[in-house]
């Protein structure tokens, strides 16, 4: 199992991944593409729900400075044992669906994923709003912005870098954890990991892991691109090099003349 076996395993895994037969679905088996779709589906649902809950909550808590205990509680939940929680929820929820649909498994899975995704988004949104300089907030109110305008036009845009980083870490965690859907009979890329493990088909198991990692990387890259366009350059600090040199020179000239 030591050094001698490792190299062939890489080739076997590559072999499994590059076999076109594994990518297509058959009447009996869902292929890589199908499971990838299911995995993305679970993840997107969880992230959208988490965003809808955590973003407004984080903005409101950050803006008002009230109910900050919610953020602490959410962070404590990060220590949740996912498989245990999932099994418990399946036991509680699935009997209500009499096995006619897979909702009895889907709902517990999504609950676990949402619970995992909320803390990073919530605490980063809260921190992002809190971090807006008091002088900036003061100026915003002083110019006659309403609470809503201060939040939407000043605090949110300045909190975006932190919000994005919270969302990205939530997304990585959700994509990695969505493999547990397969633990309760649902699809997703976890299917290859659990099946591979059960059948001692290690190339399949490792291949599944590689696919999860690749999906996470690609998704992160996509969000990074969106972030680049959504976050103001004034906040992210990406200025054109020449203009910033210009202004430094201009500043020196102004301050010294």
């Amino acid at each position: 199992m030591a050094a001698g076996g490792a190299q062939p395993m890489i080739f076997k895994t590559l072999g499994w991944l590059t076999d076109p037969g594994h990518w297509r679905s058959t009447p009996f088996d869902t292929g890589i593409l199908g499971q990838l779709g299911a995995h993305v589906g679970f993840s997107v649902i969880a992230l959208v729900i988490a965003l809808v809950i955590a973003l407004p909550a984080g903005l409101a808590i950050g803006h008002t400075g009230r109910a900050t205990w919610v953020v602490s509680v959410a962070n404590a939940v990060r220590a949740l044992p996912t498989i245990g929680a999932l099994v418990l929820l399946v036991v509680i929820i699935s009997p209500h669906f009499y096995g006619r649909t897979n909702a009895g498994f889907l709902i517990p899975t999504e609950i676990v994923l949402v619970v995992l995704a909320i803390p990073p988004i919530l605490s980063n949104t809260y921190a992002g709003v809190q971090n807006v300089s008091p002088a900036v907030r003061d100026a915003a109110f002083g110019m006659g912005m309403t609470d809503r305008q201060v939040l939407g036009r000043v605090e949110l845009p300045n909190a975006l870098p932190l919000i994005f980083s919270g969302f990205r870490s939530a997304m990585l965690q959700v994509i990695a954890t969505a493999t547990i859907a397969s633990y309760v009979t649902l699809g997703g890329l976890g299917r290859f990991i659990y099946d591979g493990l059960a059948q001692k088909d290690y190339p399949q198991m490792i291949g599944g892991g590689v696919l999860v990692a690749a999906l996470a990387l690609v998704a992160d890259l996509l969000v990074a691109v969106v972030q680049r366009y959504v976050v103001s350059r004034g906040v992210s600090g990406r200025f054109h090099r020449n203009t910033s040199v210009d202004s430094r020179v201009a500043a020196l000239v102004e301050e010294n003349v």
Binding site: S133, A135, V136, R137, D138, A139, A140, F141, G142, M143, G144, V154, P157, N158, S232, G234, V235
Partner: peptide, 16 residues
């Protein structure tokens, strides 16, 4: 406040 100009020590410009 919209009828009153307000200037503070560190300007408080909107970074974004």
């Amino acid at each position: 406040r919209r009828q009153i100009g307000y200037v503070i020590q560190n300007a408080g410009l909107f970074p974004h």
